[in-house]
């Protein structure tokens, strides 16, 4: 294998690591933070299902990113992923909530601007539209789930301890679903930009052909898993404090709502089913798991009146929303200029 290939892919792996370190907390943070699920259990389930989601269902959202900017040269893809990774790093250092999805989209647009490629405004507006819809949809789903859960709970008159045991089991199942959806939806952020360059030859195993994209998805999934194991513990333990402590049933609702939203924006199967029924389809776009979780929590808080909402945190999220793609785009543009003019690499 070309050693340069590994260097180029390293930025994607870095982004994958950052995603695992931060976004795993959206899936299992509240469960681990409230000590309903052990960290080790959470980390193992999260890693396995992120990889499964990435390899099995990662293609949908990756396709949309490819339409936004088809980066055909590996050095260009390297810089795009690196710019997104650095944006995530800087934003996190500044204490602003950050989305890898927004960072990678900003970076791709940075590449488009540098390469003189037009940005497909149709695809771009579809992506930006989902950023707005994602937390809103998550809030609506969370409200419906929470109300349904409460009504059912009141009717069934389950014992507090039974509710506790059921919630624990459900948090693990929902966490697995959330991790699968995270892998399926967000793997596009990690390795999506490398797909058009087709860095790996196809591998045939027992009659199955594993193509370059699937190998990239697997590698990206492993990078996310490494992020989960090496860095997510602290983030998971503190995630509750950021938005206020959640009770275990509310945490469950937040995780399920987020998982459903990520799944909706990643599932090719659902898209073809909706098409077959003649219904409007949901765009397959990488969305932010953090924003989905925040949307769900705000939705549940709204049920108890506006007093439950921490406006300061919400304000910072909105700033992060706008700043992340802009910062990533600028870093990418400058980085590409540097790669092309200092190292003489073909980035477009």
């Amino acid at each position: 294998m070309d050693p340069m290939l590994l260097i180029f892919l390293s930025s994607g792996m870095f982004l994958g690591w950052a995603l695992g370190a931060n976004d795993a907390a959206n899936v299992f943070g509240t469960a681990v933070g409230t000590r309903m699920v052990r960290w080790r259990t959470a980390a193992i389930i999260c890693s396995v299902f992120v990889i499964l989601g990435a390899v099995i269902s990662g293609a949908g959202a990756s396709g949309t990113l490819g339409k936004l900017g088809a980066i055909s040269a590996m050095p260009g893809a390297f810089m795009t992923a690196l710019a997104a990774g650095l944006a995530v790093y800087f934003m996190t250092r500044s204490g602003l909530p950050v989305s890898t999805s927004q960072a990678i989209v900003g970076a791709i647009i940075g590449w488009n601007l540098f390469a003189g490629q037009p940005t497909d405004l149709g695809v771009f507006s579809k992506i930006v539209g989902t950023w707005v819809i994602c937390p809103l949809l998550s809030a609506v789903i969370a409200v419906i789930l929470y109300k349904a859960m409460r009504t059912t709970g009141e009717r069934l008159r389950l014992h507090l301890l039974t509710v506790d045991a059921l919630t624990r089991t459900a948090l693990i199942v929902a966490g697995a679903f959330g991790a699968y959806s995270l892998g399926a939806n967000n793997i596009a952020n990690v390795v999506g930009v490398f797909i058009p360059a087709r860095p790996f030859p196809d591998i045939e195993v027992g009659g199955f052909v594993i193509d370059s994209a699937q190998q990239l998805f697997f590698l990206g999934g492993v990078a996310i898993a490494v992020g989960v194991f090496t860095y997510s513990r602290g983030v998971m333990m503190t995630v509750g404090g950021t938005l206020g402590r959640l009770s275990a049933p509310k945490a469950l609702v937040a995780v399920v709502a987020q998982a459903i939203v990520l799944f909706l924006f990643a599932s090719k199967g659902l898209e073809s089913w909706l098409m077959a029924q003649g219904l409007p389809t949901i765009p397959l776009v990488p969305v932010s798991s953090s924003q989905a979780v925040v949307g769900a929590i705000v939705g549940i808080s709204l049920l108890q009146g506006l007093a439950g909402i921490r406006w300061g945190v919400l304000g910072r999220i909105v700033i992060g929303w706008v700043a992340t793609p802009v910062v990533a785009g600028i870093i990418c543009f400058l980085g590409l200029f540097f790669l092309q003019n200092v190292f003489g690499l073909a980035v477009t």
């Binding site: 014992h159 301890l161 039974t162 506790d164 045991a165 089991t169």
Partner: peptide, 13 residues
């Protein structure tokens, strides 16, 4: 199943 310990504790309460 999973909830044997839970049921036992419920019975104690």
């Amino acid at each position: 199943f999973l909830f044997r310990r839970t049921r036992e504790l419920e019975r104690k309460i």
